[in-house]
């Protein structure tokens, strides 16, 4: 049990996909304008990660080495399509807000990276916890960034105004603000790493 817990935790801290590995940044920056969007993207990506990790590790002895990447892509794309269809059916507003970044989960480096680096040589249970940990780590990172951006860029939390009369720093919710926030956060984590 402790081992599973270890697999789970490493994705959240030591190998956090966003801040430590700097993977999958496109959706992180694009949809992190509000907490709702960040959470939606995080959950969608976690589902895909979990599913693809389990299936790929289950099939790791059947998939021929030379064409493994296309096989991985088919598996991942299947899960992404599932997410897309579910989202269109049950939450069209979220689907509109996330736009093309939902289909783009297919090429999210985190998903393919875990398949290639972990799931293809580990047991199904380990891969499950690895996928879960990475997914939760990704979601937490998204929540952190989208929290910062929603509070300072729009002056709201989950769509509710915090302080009356506060003029939000609108640029933070624009694309250039996303780049600025991620740059400063990466520098901040560098600083912590060096202090240690």
């Amino acid at each position: 049990m402790k081992k599973f817990f270890h697999e789970f935790l490493k994705g959240i801290f030591r190998e956090n996909p966003t801040f430590v590995l700097a993977l999958g940044l496109c959706p992180t920056l694009a949809v992190s304008t509000s907490l709702t969007n960040g959470l939606g993207m995080g959950v969608a990506a976690t589902f895909v990660l979990l599913g693809s990790n389990v299936i790929i590790s289950g099939m790791r002895n059947i998939i021929p080495g030379r064409i493994r990447i296309p096989c991985y892509i088919v598996v991942i794309a299947t899960f992404v399509t599932l997410v897309e269809m579910t989202m269109k059916a049950y939450s069209p507003a979220l689907d509109r807000a996330l736009g093309i970044y939902v289909p783009l989960i297919v090429v999210n480096c985190i998903v393919l990276g875990r398949a290639e680096a972990y799931a293809c040589k580990s047991s199904v249970t380990n891969s499950f916890f690895d996928g879960l940990g990475m997914g939760v780590g990704f979601t937490l990172a998204l929540l952190l960034i989208s929290g910062i951006r929603e509070v300072s860029g729009a002056g709201t939390i989950l769509g509710r105004e915090i302080i009356k009369g506060f003029d939000p720093v609108r640029v933070i919710s624009m694309p250039s603000g996303a780049l600025l926030v991620i740059g400063l956060l990466l520098a901040f984590f560098n600083l912590i790493k060096r202090k240690k």
């Binding site: 609108r170 640029v171 624009m174």
Partner: peptide, 8 residues
Amino acid sequence: VFLMASWP
């Protein structure tokens, strides 16, 4: 330009 984008 930061001010321009933030508080037009």
